[in-house]
Write a protein that binds this DNA or RNA. Structure first.
Lengths: 166, 166
DNA sequence: GAATTTACGTCAGCCTTGTTGACTTTCCAA
DNA sequence: TTGGAAAGTCAACAAGGCTGACGTAAATTC
């Protein structure tokens, strides 16, 4: 199904025009995707970077700083600035590693869980509405294309996160 | 596969776990989506903001500054900073409006077209690879979900852009 | 014809979030 | 014991958002 590139109409979805529409769809949809959490965060001292950190700490409790660096793809200085404020404000706890004491195992506090819940509720609500409107078959295609669009390294991260959770 | 679901079918794609996967897919895919143009731009004096301006001027030649403001969703000061450098460098031309002389009609110069081509070639190449790998049905679903994810206002913009082109 | 509104440009200043580079501390492992 | 990895810190800087204030020309309204 995927590679059947014989003649006629099978390749119509690969025209430059179709691709351009896909590109603009990504652009506009990503705005919607980030909008709700951004709105919640504004007014607090936090931004999108804090949201990302909170999301992935929630997702993989006990993860280390360097794990987070790999997933987020930023420098440790950038991440550290964000992490520091979250720790100072009591949303994140950094526990010295048990096996390797150089590592810090990151966890959300109750307060951190609260904010995470607020943010992900908003983001999931939009996602749910979109999924519901589009239907299960479209959702399947959505995920397939997005996965194919990732860099191989990001795809590995994405998939290992998936299998990491039960 | 991930969640221990029985074969209920109909609403399984709306579980929080499924939604979370979609959220992370958006995050990782958007990185891939912006990566290639970003790499081309770095080293030049331009960034993602310039790319966006160039894209939409190419897309709607003769568009006005305020049109662009609406589409991009930034302040005029932000856009102006970007536009000014593009005009100074001879990538964009701002012609005084014919009917309304307060307006500036924006066009890419030959030089601007060159960069646009470079950027969109890179972005389309990744998009094409993803589309090809996923197949036409998945692409259809991809676009449907993204469209449903947009804010109504953005969706209008997106659709009016679509109909603008033949 | 005067007043107001619109479209655009610009100056100044601030914030978030990214970057490099240099340096320290801790501590595991060879 | 020593090299290097993990983590943190300080400093400086850039891109690209933002607000507020102001200016000007053109169009519109009264």
């Amino acid at each position: 199904m995927a590679e059947g590139n014989t003649g006629g109409e099978s390749l119509l979805f690969l025209t430059d025009e179709q691709l351009r529409k896909g590109i603009e769809a990504m652009f506009f949809a990503y705005r919607g995707f980030t909008d709700d959490p951004d709105r919640i965060l504004e007014g607090m001292d936090y931004g999108r970077a804090h949201h990302r950190a909170i999301h992935f700490i929630h997702r993989s409790p006990g993860t280390t700083v360097s794990n987070l660096l790999t997933i987020l793809g930023v420098t440790k200085q950038s991440l550290n600035r964000v992490l520091r404020t979250l720790i100072e404000d009591g949303l994140v706890e950094a526990r010295v590693g048990k096996a390797d004491k150089r590592e810090r195992n990151l966890h959300l506090t109750a307060k951190g869980q609260d904010l995470e819940r607020q943010l992900s509720d908003a983001q999931r609500a939009r996602m749910r509405a979109a999924y519901r409107a589009a239907g299960p078959a479209a959702v399947q295609g959505f995920r397939t294309v997005l996965e194919a669009m990732m860099d191989p390294e990001m795809r590995r991260q994405y998939q290992s996160l998936r299998e990491g959770e039960k």
